[in-house]
């Protein structure tokens, strides 16, 4: 860590895809600071640049203008300090569940016995202790995503970037995984940037909800979620939760309400 108190900073970040007549501004002048240990969720209409913003932090996409800092340093390419969990799981189908989780450790040169032990530890953590030898094709969607989470955790990143990680899952599994994420967070306090389409999910797990607007993708509003941790069912069902949820909903879906009326 340097003098910068922020874990992740977007400084006037713009991203343009394509050139000339085909140029498309996916993100325009985004300014955003995310504190160390903070959980922010990012919501907004489809195509507003949520994935683009996350891929910039991950180092998978380069900025067109401005800069993105992680720990005060400009991002230059991906690295194991930033774990990414993709919506499509992206497990390697040719590797077993254990080998998937151990993949990042293997890249670090850890010997097989040690990395398998580490992998098993993380599989245990996400409730897949018995599935180490299985191949991904035999897992359900929820199990695949838990395996992907274990794979990201295994290299011990200080930032978790999650792009609609629970989007493809049923409501019950989703709630379970949200609680599991918060539970793990309460122990390690990693910084989390979490993209979702689900307003309830966005409010339930976050310190702050970042609302983006589309065309061009830009910051619309930041909504503080003033609810205590640990988050529980009671909180989820409280009037305070509902009030914030409604506020986020309006910011995402009804921003033109006054104009249209």
């Amino acid at each position: 860590m340097t003098g910068d108190p922020h874990k992740i900073s977007f400084r006037n970040v713009s991203k343009v895809f394509g050139e000339g007549a085909n140029a498309f501004t996916a993100l325009k002048n985004l300014n955003l600071d995310i504190a160390d240990g903070e959980i922010v969720t990012v919501v907004g209409p489809s195509g507003c640049g949520k994935s683009t913003a996350m891929n910039i932090v991950a180092g998978l996409t380069e900025v067109s203008a401005g800069e993105c800092l992680v720990d005060g340093h400009p991002v230059s390419g991906p690295g194991p300090d930033r774990g990414v969990i993709f919506q499509q799981y992206a497990l390697f189908p040719w590797l077993t569940v254990r080998e998937n989780v151990a993949f990042g450790l293997m890249l670090q040169g850890m010997d097989k016995q040690e990395r398998n032990a580490r992998a098993d530890h993380y599989l245990e953590l996400v409730g897949l202790g018995d599935f180490g030898d299985a191949y991904p094709k035999t897992l359900s969607g929820g199990m695949k995503q838990r395996c992907a989470i274990a794979r990201a955790y295994a290299v011990n990143p200080s930032v978790l970037l999650m792009d609609e990680p629970f989007g493809a899952l049923d409501a019950l599994t989703r709630v379970r995984l949200q609680d599991q994420l918060l539970d793990t967070w309460s122990k390690d306090r990693r910084t989390v940037m979490f993209i979702t389409h689900d307003v309830d999910e966005a409010v339930y797990i976050a310190h702050r909800v970042i609302v983006l607007a589309a065309r061009p993708g830009r910051l619309q509003q930041i909504i503080d979620v003033d609810l205590p941790f640990p988050r529980t069912e009671d909180i989820r069902l409280s009037p305070e939760f509902t009030a914030i949820r409604n506020q986020v909903w309006r910011a995402v879906y009804h921003r033109d309400e006054t104009a249209a009326a």
Binding site: A58, G59, L60, G77, P78, G79, P80, R82, G83, V84, F86, Q88, A90, L91, F92, F103, G104, L107, Q108, R151, V155
Partner: peptide, 13 residues
């Protein structure tokens, strides 16, 4: 699939 390549890159490959 691009996502496999990205998944490997973010793990440090």
């Amino acid at each position: 699939d691009r996502t496999y390549i990205n998944a490997a890159r973010v793990l440090g490959a």
